[in-house]
Simulated assay, not measured.
Amino acid sequence: MSETPPGAQLERTQLSWRRTLVSVTAVALLLARLAAVHLRDLAAACALAAVGLLWAAAVALALRRMRSVATPIGRELPWMVALILLYCVMGTLLLVS
């Protein structure tokens, strides 16, 4: 079994957070486009604001996790689950309307 160089695990963890951030950004852009195309004025503005706020929260969380890779993820897991559930609800509402 090969031994991993020191720091490789931290680098892989930071890269995985960056990939997650890219995925969240892509989903936010798709939801924003869907809201802008299919919703009316006030509903589109509210949906775009919600998408923007959720995206900003996800970016802040990912950046904080990348800076403090050594801390366990258990403390941040409820916030990440809440963000994912909010994205699912928003996506569902945007697709239904």
Rank of each mutant, 00 (worst) to 15 (best):
G91F: 09
L94I: 10
L34T: 14
A45I: 12
A56L: 15
L86N: 02
Q14M: 09
R19S: 08
A26C: 07
A45K: 10
V37A: 13
Q9E: 06
R65C: 05
V89K: 02
V96S: 13
R64T: 14
L93K: 05
V22K: 05
R64G: 15
V22Q: 03
A50G: 02
R64A: 15
W55Q: 01
R65Q: 14
L53M: 02
L85I: 02
P5I: 03
A47C: 09
L94M: 12
R18W: 06
L83Q: 04
I84H: 03
T13Y: 12
M1N: 13
R19K: 10
A49N: 04
L94C: 05
V51K: 01
L61G: 14
C46A: 13
T20Y: 11
I73C: 13
L30N: 06
R40P: 03
E76G: 06
A43P: 01
C46W: 04
R67L: 09
P6A: 10
V27H: 06
Q9W: 03
A82R: 02
V69G: 07
L86K: 00
S23V: 06
L63E: 11
M66L: 02
V89E: 03
E11P: 01
M1H: 15
S23I: 07
L83A: 10
S97A: 14
P72Y: 02
V27G: 04
A28L: 01
